[in-house]
């Protein structure tokens, strides 16, 4: 959710119980402004928070004018002092995929993971247990990146592709219509298209290249990984990710108000097929 309209967005997203206490709100409003100034971001998003056992991580993201440019992620434990996180790499993903369980809330906490590594000494091949230490900060980076790639979404038309290539915020976007807001196809993943390239020409025929340059939600795997609800008597659409429980997307049809927030444990719901 945009840092500028944080209060309204929080109000809209509160249907899932994911609020912020007044002091957090106030400090976020203050400190995110400063983050925007100091890091020279064009836009600052309040991304959400990851609940740790001891403390919570508050996450913010800075965007440049091109919305698809690599995003900078910052975290804070007290909503006032922000620290920049390194960009996620494939290596980090592989490394942290072995860690499960809850976050601790201490970025320097180290998870210990014992791995069996094959050692060769001369002719003998024997397995040796190696203790790998993984910092929680690394895990935080990779989890945020995974969530961003999997379930960060925006309504169709909120971004548009300029003729020169970069993706900009669409000023003329004034909301989805009610009938569109109920369909998953009106929402896009907030990332470069992957599926789109694999589509047939026939499927691409009706697409508007300036708007339909991202993957829509309707083909997400598994089918049914989104719960879409009309709340407040159809005055608000709320999408909840079931794959990453805790991610709430809200959009008030016919207004510019939309955004998403993640409040959760930072764990993927692998049980989804059992639960549907």
């Amino acid at each position: 959710m945009d840092a500028e309209s944080l209060l309204l967005s929080l109000e809209l997203a509160s249907g899932s119980g994911q609020g912020l206490s007044p002091d957090r709100r106030a400090s976020l409003l203050t400190s995110l402004m400063l983050v925007k100034r100091d890091y020279r971001y064009d836009r600052v998003l309040f991304w959400g928070r990851i609940l740790g056992l001891v403390a919570d991580y508050y996450i913010a993201q800075g965007l440049s004018e091109d919305q698809f440019a690599p995003r900078k992620t910052l975290y804070s434990l007290n909503c006032t002092e922000w620290s920049l996180l390194p960009p996620a790499t494939e290596e980090m993903m592989a490394q942290t995929s072995v860690v499960n369980g809850r976050f601790m809330g201490d970025p320097s906490h180290e998870y210990e993971h014992t791995e069996l590594q094959k050692m060769t000494e001369g002719d003998k091949v024997f397995e040796e247990e190696v203790v790998v230490q993984i910092k929680e900060e690394t895990r935080l980076v990779s989890v945020i990146d995974q969530i961003d790639k999997a379930v960060a979404i925006i309504p169709r038309g909120a971004l548009f592709k300029t003729p020169f290539g970069p993706i900009h915020v669409n000023r003329t976007f004034d909301g989805l219509s009610l009938s569109e807001a109920k369909k998953l196809s009106s929402y896009f993943h907030f990332k470069e298209a992957v599926e789109l390239k694999n589509k047939t020409l026939l499927e691409k025929a009706d697409l508007d290249p300036s708007l339909d340059f991202m993957d829509s939600l309707e083909h997400d795997i598994p089918k049914g990984s989104w719960s879409i609800q009309m709340e407040r008597g159809h005055a608000l659409v709320v999408l909840r990710s079931l794959l990453w429980p805790g991610l709430t997307f809200f959009h008030a049809p016919r207004t510019k108000n939309y955004g998403y927030i993640y409040v959760g444990t930072g764990e993927k719901n692998m049980d989804l097929p059992f639960m549907l």
């Binding site: 109000e11 809209l12 119980g17 609020g19 912020l20 206490s21 007044p22």
Partner: peptide, 12 residues
């Protein structure tokens, strides 16, 4: 609960 950072919006 709002102080605690949980709960629904005021009007709800």
């Amino acid at each position: 609960f709002e102080q605690a950072g949980v709960g629904l919006s005021t009007d709800e």
